[in-house]
Design a protein around this nucleic acid. Structure first.
Lengths: 146, 146
DNA sequence: CTACAATCTGACGTTGACGTAAGGATTCAA
DNA sequence: TTGAATCCTTACGTCAACGTCAGATTGTAG
Protein backbone atom coordinates (compact mmCIF):
# COMPACT_ATOMS: atom_id res chain seq x y z
CA UNK A 1 0.00 0.00 0.00
CA UNK A 2 3.02 2.27 0.18
CA UNK A 3 3.74 4.50 -2.75
CA UNK A 4 7.40 3.61 -2.67
CA UNK A 5 9.11 0.49 -1.40
CA UNK A 6 10.76 0.87 1.97
CA UNK A 7 14.27 -0.01 0.93
CA UNK A 8 16.47 2.65 2.45
CA UNK A 9 18.46 2.04 5.57
CA UNK A 10 19.00 4.53 8.31
CA UNK A 11 22.43 5.56 7.12
CA UNK A 12 21.19 6.24 3.61
CA UNK A 13 18.35 8.35 4.89
CA UNK A 14 20.69 10.28 7.13
CA UNK A 15 22.93 11.10 4.20
CA UNK A 16 19.98 12.04 2.03
CA UNK A 17 18.63 14.62 4.46
CA UNK A 18 21.94 15.71 5.93
CA UNK A 19 21.72 14.42 9.45
CA UNK A 20 22.89 11.42 11.48
CA UNK A 21 21.40 8.00 12.28
CA UNK A 22 21.38 8.89 15.93
CA UNK A 23 19.12 11.86 15.29
CA UNK A 24 16.72 9.70 13.30
CA UNK A 25 16.48 7.15 16.08
CA UNK A 26 16.03 9.93 18.57
CA UNK A 27 13.15 11.40 16.58
CA UNK A 28 11.55 7.99 16.41
CA UNK A 29 11.97 7.60 20.14
CA UNK A 30 10.26 10.93 20.68
CA UNK A 31 7.36 10.04 18.42
CA UNK A 32 8.22 12.38 15.58
CA UNK A 33 8.76 9.51 13.22
CA UNK A 34 6.73 6.30 13.01
CA UNK A 35 8.30 3.33 14.76
CA UNK A 36 8.23 1.10 11.66
CA UNK A 37 5.38 -1.06 12.92
CA UNK A 38 6.29 -4.47 11.56
CA UNK A 39 9.84 -4.73 12.73
CA UNK A 40 11.17 -7.09 15.37
CA UNK A 41 13.65 -5.67 17.85
CA UNK A 42 17.16 -6.03 16.52
CA UNK A 43 16.17 -5.82 12.87
CA UNK A 44 17.37 -3.00 10.70
CA UNK A 45 15.02 -0.09 10.14
CA UNK A 46 13.79 0.40 6.60
CA UNK A 47 12.53 3.64 5.12
CA UNK A 48 10.75 4.76 1.96
CA UNK A 49 10.59 7.98 0.03
CA UNK A 50 7.70 9.16 2.15
CA UNK A 51 9.71 8.83 5.33
CA UNK A 52 12.50 10.85 3.77
CA UNK A 53 10.08 13.60 2.89
CA UNK A 54 8.63 13.59 6.34
CA UNK A 55 12.03 13.89 7.90
CA UNK A 56 12.98 16.70 5.53
CA UNK A 57 9.91 18.61 6.61
CA UNK A 58 10.72 18.04 10.24
CA UNK A 59 14.25 19.36 9.90
CA UNK A 60 13.09 22.27 7.84
CA UNK A 61 10.58 23.34 10.45
CA UNK A 62 13.05 22.80 13.23
CA UNK A 63 15.49 25.12 11.49
CA UNK A 64 12.95 27.74 10.52
CA UNK A 65 10.85 27.86 13.64
CA UNK A 66 13.43 26.79 16.15
CA UNK A 67 10.77 25.19 18.29
CA UNK A 68 11.39 22.35 20.74
CA UNK A 69 10.74 18.88 19.36
CA UNK A 70 7.73 18.49 21.59
CA UNK A 71 6.07 21.45 19.92
CA UNK A 72 7.23 20.24 16.55
CA UNK A 73 5.46 16.98 17.14
CA UNK A 74 2.17 18.78 17.57
CA UNK A 75 2.68 20.61 14.31
CA UNK A 76 3.29 17.42 12.39
CA UNK A 77 0.41 15.78 14.21
CA UNK A 78 -1.60 18.30 12.25
CA UNK A 79 0.02 16.93 9.11
CA UNK A 80 -0.89 13.42 10.13
CA UNK A 81 -4.51 14.26 10.63
CA UNK A 82 -4.39 15.97 7.29
CA UNK A 83 -3.16 12.81 5.60
CA UNK A 84 -5.86 10.78 7.30
CA UNK A 85 -8.58 13.16 6.28
CA UNK A 86 -7.34 13.26 2.72
CA UNK A 87 -7.52 9.51 2.30
CA UNK A 88 -10.92 9.58 3.93
CA UNK A 89 -11.92 12.20 1.42
CA UNK A 90 -10.98 9.93 -1.46
CA UNK A 91 -13.09 7.13 -0.17
CA UNK A 92 -16.36 8.98 0.04
CA UNK A 93 -18.71 10.60 -2.44
CA UNK A 94 -21.29 11.77 0.03
CA UNK A 95 -21.36 15.56 -0.40
CA UNK A 96 -22.19 16.29 3.21
CA UNK A 97 -19.33 14.12 4.37
CA UNK A 98 -16.96 15.73 1.90
CA UNK A 99 -17.88 19.17 3.10
CA UNK A 100 -17.39 18.21 6.71
CA UNK A 101 -13.91 16.86 5.98
CA UNK A 102 -12.95 19.86 3.90
CA UNK A 103 -13.94 22.22 6.65
CA UNK A 104 -11.86 20.28 9.10
CA UNK A 105 -8.91 20.38 6.70
CA UNK A 106 -9.28 24.09 6.34
CA UNK A 107 -9.30 24.56 10.09
CA UNK A 108 -6.08 22.60 10.39
CA UNK A 109 -4.36 24.57 7.67
CA UNK A 110 -5.49 27.78 9.30
CA UNK A 111 -4.01 26.77 12.59
CA UNK A 112 -0.69 25.89 11.04
CA UNK A 113 -0.73 29.06 9.03
CA UNK A 114 -1.28 31.14 12.11
CA UNK A 115 1.77 29.64 13.78
CA UNK A 116 4.01 30.29 10.80
CA UNK A 117 2.47 33.57 9.77
CA UNK A 118 3.14 35.28 13.02
CA UNK A 119 6.76 34.29 12.95
CA UNK A 120 7.12 35.32 9.34
CA UNK A 121 5.58 38.70 10.06
CA UNK A 122 7.92 39.43 12.91
CA UNK A 123 10.93 38.43 10.89
CA UNK A 124 9.80 40.60 8.03
CA UNK A 125 9.50 43.52 10.40
CA UNK A 126 13.04 43.00 11.60
CA UNK A 127 14.26 42.74 8.05
CA UNK A 128 12.50 45.95 7.12
CA UNK A 129 14.08 47.79 10.01
CA UNK A 130 17.54 46.84 8.90
CA UNK A 131 16.74 47.60 5.28
CA UNK A 132 15.51 51.05 6.32
CA UNK A 133 18.79 51.70 8.07
CA UNK A 134 20.65 50.81 4.92
CA UNK A 135 18.49 53.14 2.91
CA UNK A 136 19.27 56.01 5.26
CA UNK A 137 22.96 55.33 4.97
CA UNK A 138 22.69 55.29 1.21
CA UNK A 139 20.98 58.66 1.38
CA UNK A 140 23.77 60.12 3.46
CA UNK A 141 26.29 58.79 1.00
CA UNK A 142 24.42 60.26 -1.95
CA UNK A 143 24.33 63.84 -0.68
CA UNK A 144 27.77 64.91 0.47
CA UNK A 145 26.32 68.20 1.81
CA UNK A 146 24.51 68.54 5.07
CA UNK B 1 26.84 60.95 29.53
CA UNK B 2 24.05 58.43 29.64
CA UNK B 3 20.73 59.37 28.11
CA UNK B 4 18.85 57.92 31.04
CA UNK B 5 19.88 57.45 34.62
CA UNK B 6 20.81 53.89 35.52
CA UNK B 7 18.28 53.37 38.25
CA UNK B 8 16.69 50.02 37.50
CA UNK B 9 17.64 46.93 39.39
CA UNK B 10 17.99 43.52 37.88
CA UNK B 11 14.58 42.33 39.04
CA UNK B 12 12.87 45.36 37.54
CA UNK B 13 14.59 44.87 34.22
CA UNK B 14 13.69 41.20 34.20
CA UNK B 15 10.03 42.05 34.70
CA UNK B 16 10.16 44.74 32.05
CA UNK B 17 11.45 42.45 29.35
CA UNK B 18 9.80 39.28 30.53
CA UNK B 19 12.75 37.22 31.64
CA UNK B 20 14.57 36.35 34.87
CA UNK B 21 17.49 37.87 36.77
CA UNK B 22 19.46 34.70 36.27
CA UNK B 23 19.21 35.04 32.50
CA UNK B 24 20.43 38.63 32.68
CA UNK B 25 23.44 37.66 34.74
CA UNK B 26 24.10 34.81 32.38
CA UNK B 27 24.06 37.11 29.38
CA UNK B 28 26.43 39.45 31.12
CA UNK B 29 28.70 36.53 31.91
CA UNK B 30 28.70 35.54 28.25
CA UNK B 31 29.50 39.03 27.08
CA UNK B 32 26.14 39.83 25.56
CA UNK B 33 25.53 42.60 28.04
CA UNK B 34 28.09 45.08 29.39
CA UNK B 35 29.48 44.22 32.80
CA UNK B 36 28.50 47.56 34.36
CA UNK B 37 32.06 48.87 34.47
CA UNK B 38 32.03 50.97 37.63
CA UNK B 39 30.64 48.45 40.04
CA UNK B 40 32.49 46.78 42.88
CA UNK B 41 31.85 43.09 43.37
CA UNK B 42 28.93 42.53 45.67
CA UNK B 43 27.15 45.73 44.73
CA UNK B 44 23.78 45.61 43.06
CA UNK B 45 23.68 45.97 39.30
CA UNK B 46 22.01 49.09 37.97
CA UNK B 47 20.48 49.49 34.55
CA UNK B 48 19.15 52.31 32.39
CA UNK B 49 16.65 52.51 29.59
CA UNK B 50 19.36 51.79 27.07
CA UNK B 51 20.22 48.51 28.71
CA UNK B 52 16.58 47.53 28.67
CA UNK B 53 16.38 48.23 24.96
CA UNK B 54 19.52 46.27 24.31
CA UNK B 55 18.18 43.29 26.20
CA UNK B 56 14.88 43.50 24.36
CA UNK B 57 16.70 43.36 21.05
CA UNK B 58 18.71 40.39 22.21
CA UNK B 59 15.67 38.42 23.25
CA UNK B 60 13.84 39.36 20.11
CA UNK B 61 16.64 38.10 17.89
CA UNK B 62 17.03 35.00 19.98
CA UNK B 63 13.36 34.21 19.49
CA UNK B 64 13.21 35.09 15.82
CA UNK B 65 16.47 33.62 14.64
CA UNK B 66 16.87 30.90 17.19
CA UNK B 67 20.63 31.18 17.01
CA UNK B 68 23.00 30.15 19.81
CA UNK B 69 24.06 32.96 22.13
CA UNK B 70 27.57 32.82 20.77
CA UNK B 71 26.32 33.68 17.31
CA UNK B 72 23.98 36.25 18.75
CA UNK B 73 26.93 37.98 20.34
CA UNK B 74 28.51 38.45 16.96
CA UNK B 75 25.34 39.97 15.60
CA UNK B 76 25.14 42.51 18.39
CA UNK B 77 28.85 43.12 18.09
CA UNK B 78 27.81 44.53 14.73
CA UNK B 79 25.40 46.79 16.60
CA UNK B 80 28.16 47.88 18.91
CA UNK B 81 30.47 48.82 16.10
CA UNK B 82 27.55 50.64 14.57
CA UNK B 83 27.11 52.73 17.70
CA UNK B 84 30.80 53.50 17.82
CA UNK B 85 30.92 54.54 14.21
CA UNK B 86 27.87 56.72 14.58
CA UNK B 87 29.36 58.70 17.40
CA UNK B 88 32.56 58.92 15.43
CA UNK B 89 30.51 60.22 12.56
CA UNK B 90 29.13 63.02 14.68
CA UNK B 91 32.55 64.16 15.73
CA UNK B 92 33.99 64.70 12.29
CA UNK B 93 33.29 67.00 9.39
CA UNK B 94 35.99 65.72 7.07
CA UNK B 95 34.08 64.48 4.02
CA UNK B 96 36.55 61.70 3.21
CA UNK B 97 36.34 60.42 6.75
CA UNK B 98 32.56 60.59 6.73
CA UNK B 99 32.42 58.61 3.54
CA UNK B 100 34.72 55.96 4.89
CA UNK B 101 32.61 55.54 8.01
CA UNK B 102 29.38 55.46 6.05
CA UNK B 103 30.68 52.75 3.79
CA UNK B 104 31.68 50.71 6.79
CA UNK B 105 28.23 51.21 8.31
CA UNK B 106 26.62 50.08 5.11
CA UNK B 107 28.74 46.96 5.00
CA UNK B 108 27.69 46.10 8.53
CA UNK B 109 24.02 46.60 7.79
CA UNK B 110 24.35 44.50 4.69
CA UNK B 111 25.85 41.64 6.64
CA UNK B 112 23.09 41.73 9.22
CA UNK B 113 20.49 41.99 6.52
CA UNK B 114 21.84 38.95 4.75
CA UNK B 115 21.53 36.87 7.90
CA UNK B 116 17.94 37.92 8.49
CA UNK B 117 16.86 38.07 4.89
CA UNK B 118 17.64 34.47 4.13
CA UNK B 119 15.67 33.28 7.12
CA UNK B 120 12.77 35.54 6.27
CA UNK B 121 12.69 34.29 2.71
CA UNK B 122 12.56 30.65 3.73
CA UNK B 123 9.84 31.32 6.24
CA UNK B 124 7.83 33.20 3.65
CA UNK B 125 8.13 30.23 1.33
CA UNK B 126 6.79 27.92 3.98
CA UNK B 127 3.95 30.29 4.72
CA UNK B 128 3.08 30.48 1.04
CA UNK B 129 2.94 26.72 0.76
CA UNK B 130 0.46 26.46 3.57
CA UNK B 131 -1.56 29.35 2.23
CA UNK B 132 -1.71 27.64 -1.16
CA UNK B 133 -3.08 24.52 0.48
CA UNK B 134 -5.79 26.56 2.09
CA UNK B 135 -6.66 28.14 -1.22
CA UNK B 136 -7.06 24.72 -2.83
CA UNK B 137 -9.33 23.59 -0.04
CA UNK B 138 -11.41 26.69 -0.45
CA UNK B 139 -11.73 25.88 -4.14
CA UNK B 140 -12.94 22.40 -3.42
CA UNK B 141 -15.48 23.79 -1.00
CA UNK B 142 -16.72 26.30 -3.55
CA UNK B 143 -17.49 23.82 -6.33
CA UNK B 144 -19.55 20.92 -4.99
CA UNK B 145 -19.44 19.10 -8.37
CA UNK B 146 -16.65 17.06 -9.96
C1' DC C 1 18.69 52.04 63.40
C1' DT C 2 16.33 48.07 62.21
C1' DA C 3 13.85 44.96 59.68
C1' DC C 4 12.96 43.02 55.43
C1' DA C 5 13.08 42.44 50.58
C1' DA C 6 16.05 42.14 46.87
C1' DT C 7 20.60 41.15 45.28
C1' DC C 8 25.22 39.17 45.42
C1' DT C 9 28.50 35.25 44.35
C1' DG C 10 29.56 30.62 43.95
C1' DA C 11 28.21 26.06 43.01
C1' DC C 12 25.59 22.33 41.83
C1' DG C 13 21.18 20.55 39.32
C1' DT C 14 18.26 20.08 35.14
C1' DT C 15 16.56 19.62 30.51
C1' DG C 16 16.72 19.09 25.58
C1' DA C 17 19.05 17.31 21.80
C1' DC C 18 21.88 14.83 20.49
C1' DG C 19 27.31 12.38 20.50
C1' DT C 20 29.96 8.43 21.53
C1' DA C 21 31.41 3.99 22.90
C1' DA C 22 30.68 -1.10 23.69
C1' DG C 23 29.33 -5.62 22.50
C1' DG C 24 26.56 -8.16 19.67
C1' DA C 25 23.37 -9.05 15.62
C1' DT C 26 21.99 -8.39 10.57
C1' DT C 27 22.68 -7.77 5.59
C1' DC C 28 24.55 -8.57 1.48
C1' DA C 29 27.98 -9.25 -1.87
C1' DA C 30 31.42 -12.49 -3.25
C1' DT D 1 29.50 -19.24 4.13
C1' DT D 2 32.20 -15.91 5.28
C1' DG D 3 33.47 -11.45 5.84
C1' DA D 4 33.07 -6.43 5.93
C1' DA D 5 29.96 -2.86 6.49
C1' DT D 6 26.20 -1.37 8.62
C1' DC D 7 22.95 -1.63 12.10
C1' DC D 8 20.99 -2.95 16.70
C1' DT D 9 20.29 -1.67 21.81
C1' DT D 10 21.94 0.15 26.07
C1' DA D 11 24.09 3.40 28.52
C1' DC D 12 26.91 6.93 29.73
C1' DG D 13 28.91 11.69 28.12
C1' DT D 14 28.35 16.51 26.60
C1' DC D 15 27.02 21.18 25.80
C1' DA D 16 24.13 25.20 25.97
C1' DA D 17 21.02 27.76 28.58
C1' DC D 18 19.42 28.47 32.16
C1' DG D 19 17.10 26.90 37.32
C1' DT D 20 17.83 26.48 42.12
C1' DC D 21 19.83 26.71 46.57
C1' DA D 22 22.78 28.62 50.37
C1' DG D 23 24.81 31.98 53.01
C1' DA D 24 26.34 36.52 53.06
C1' DT D 25 25.53 41.38 51.69
C1' DT D 26 23.17 45.57 50.27
C1' DG D 27 19.43 48.88 49.56
C1' DT D 28 15.45 51.18 51.67
C1' DA D 29 10.97 52.02 54.07
C1' DG D 30 9.55 53.04 58.50
Amino acid sequence: MSTTAASLRIGDVARLVGTTPRTIRYYEEKGLLPAGAGRAAGQHRLYGEGDVERLRELLRMRNLLGVPLEELRELVAVDDERAMLRSELHRTDAPAERERILHRLDALAERQLAAVDRRAGELDALRDEIAARRARIAELLAEPER
